[in-house]
Computed example of a mutant assay.
Amino acid sequence: MEQNEDDALEVLCLNEEEQMEVESQEIDMRAINDMLQNGPQSRMEFQSRECLFAAYQEYAKHKGFSVSTRNVQKEKYLMISCDRGRKPNVIKHLSNNMKRQLEARDMAGIRVCKNIRLLEVLAGGPSSLGASVKDCRNFIDQRRRLRLAEGDAAAIYNLFKRLQQQDRNFFHLMDLDDDNRLRNVMWIHPRSRAAYEEFHDVVSFDTTYLVNQYNMPFGTVVGVNHHNQSILLGCALFTNEHAESFKWFFTNWLDAMEGVQPTTILTDQCESIRIALREVMPDSINRFCLWHIVSKTNSDSDFNSMLYHSLSMDEFESRCDEFLTEHSLHNNKWLKDLYGER
């Protein structure tokens, strides 16, 4: 009899623990759903740090970016930072005189911390500087991108000159800023120009590559020949990814290709590229590269199947609606914008 009572008590305890676990999971799901619908709000409550981070992960995934945690000194705080990719640094508070001083001392080999400290001393203290330390560091970093090491620009020019002497159809341009420093550079091999005459129906433009030493985006135009092989149709190095840089490249690339616009050009979802294409190549159809789209979805099999295995527009529309309904994503802004651009 006592054994039966013990067994009943153990079962009761297990049922209570299971019920508490179920209630906790229900609270966690409500918190995640609330985050997805309304976004991060003040005074939101979560059962645990894990639930908090899981909610932010789901929200970030549906918005098209990712998040990560960072260490903080106090254990009761959890710092979550956006990991959306590189963004342009904006310098708002540095005067022209301050910029000249920072760059001159940087060229003289003075370390960044001492360089900024000298600027603070000359201004009468950090509070009188009118700019933050981060502003100063960002400016120095940008100027270093523009300023190649001694002899590098000349070496590039001499290489291009030698290649043009070997073949007059070799095309190259070097874009300089107001101080005659190298800003952007592009080149096109004669074989690329000849191939483009036959294969200009679909090309892709990509800037996901980086040069390690100068951190300059490396852009490529790639096409496909009649053997289904990739062919390189032009290259460029940029100091930034602004619309003006892309306009400069596309304008000169089009000139080198005798003004023949590609029928379709594939790019990522960079707005600066789209602005440049609308102005320089209005007759070309701009479509988003599937690789870039899929890379933002954590390789969801249903999403990939919808993109790659739909054989007609009606099938795609049907599978898309099923996917959005199954994953409760009808109100997802990134997907709605993407669908609107289809």
Score class of each variant (00 low, 15 high):
residue 142 Q to W: 06
residue 128 S to V: 01
residue 145 R to V: 14
residue 141 D to K: 11
residue 112 V to F: 04
residue 131 A to R: 06
residue 163 L to R: 12
residue 148 L to D: 02
residue 165 Q to N: 11
residue 125 G to S: 05
residue 123 A to V: 01
residue 114 K to P: 00
residue 131 A to N: 03
residue 136 C to L: 01
residue 137 R to E: 14
residue 154 A to Q: 14
residue 157 Y to I: 10
residue 151 G to Y: 04
residue 164 Q to G: 08
residue 136 C to A: 15
residue 162 R to M: 08
residue 136 C to E: 02
residue 135 D to A: 12
residue 132 S to A: 06
residue 119 L to S: 08
residue 114 K to Y: 07
residue 145 R to F: 04
residue 139 F to S: 04
residue 160 F to C: 15
residue 124 G to V: 02
residue 113 C to S: 13
residue 119 L to N: 02
residue 153 A to T: 14
residue 143 R to D: 07
residue 145 R to T: 14
residue 130 G to Y: 05
residue 117 R to I: 07
residue 137 R to K: 15
residue 161 K to V: 13
residue 129 L to V: 05
residue 117 R to K: 12
residue 166 Q to E: 13
residue 160 F to M: 13
residue 159 L to S: 07
residue 143 R to C: 12
residue 123 A to Q: 09
residue 133 V to R: 14
residue 125 G to F: 03
residue 123 A to K: 13
residue 112 V to Q: 11
residue 142 Q to M: 15
residue 154 A to Y: 00
residue 156 I to D: 01
residue 140 I to T: 05
residue 149 A to D: 14
residue 142 Q to S: 14
residue 127 S to G: 02
residue 119 L to I: 02
residue 125 G to C: 08
residue 134 K to L: 06
residue 156 I to M: 10
residue 111 R to M: 04
residue 144 R to M: 09
residue 145 R to C: 15
residue 161 K to M: 10
residue 125 G to H: 07
residue 133 V to D: 13
residue 156 I to K: 04
residue 152 D to H: 10
residue 133 V to P: 00
residue 137 R to V: 12
residue 166 Q to G: 12
residue 132 S to C: 06
residue 124 G to E: 05
residue 113 C to K: 10
residue 115 N to V: 09
residue 133 V to A: 06
residue 166 Q to M: 10
residue 122 L to C: 02
residue 153 A to C: 12
residue 127 S to T: 13
residue 116 I to Q: 09
residue 117 R to Q: 15
residue 121 V to C: 00
residue 164 Q to R: 15
residue 122 L to R: 05
residue 159 L to P: 00
residue 144 R to V: 06
residue 114 K to C: 08
residue 125 G to T: 03
residue 160 F to W: 03
residue 116 I to R: 01
residue 135 D to Y: 10
residue 147 R to N: 14
residue 122 L to F: 01
residue 125 G to D: 03
residue 120 E to D: 05
residue 135 D to Q: 15
residue 137 R to W: 00
residue 157 Y to E: 12
residue 139 F to A: 04
residue 161 K to H: 09
residue 152 D to T: 15
residue 146 L to G: 12
residue 131 A to F: 05
residue 128 S to Q: 13
residue 139 F to Q: 07
residue 120 E to Y: 11
residue 159 L to M: 10
residue 163 L to F: 14
residue 150 E to M: 01
residue 152 D to N: 09
residue 116 I to G: 04
residue 131 A to H: 03
residue 113 C to Q: 10
residue 116 I to T: 05
residue 164 Q to K: 15
residue 140 I to R: 03
residue 149 A to C: 07
residue 150 E to F: 06
residue 115 N to K: 02
residue 150 E to C: 05
residue 152 D to C: 11
residue 160 F to S: 06
residue 136 C to K: 02
residue 138 N to S: 10
residue 137 R to P: 00
residue 146 L to F: 10
residue 144 R to L: 08
residue 138 N to I: 07
residue 147 R to T: 10
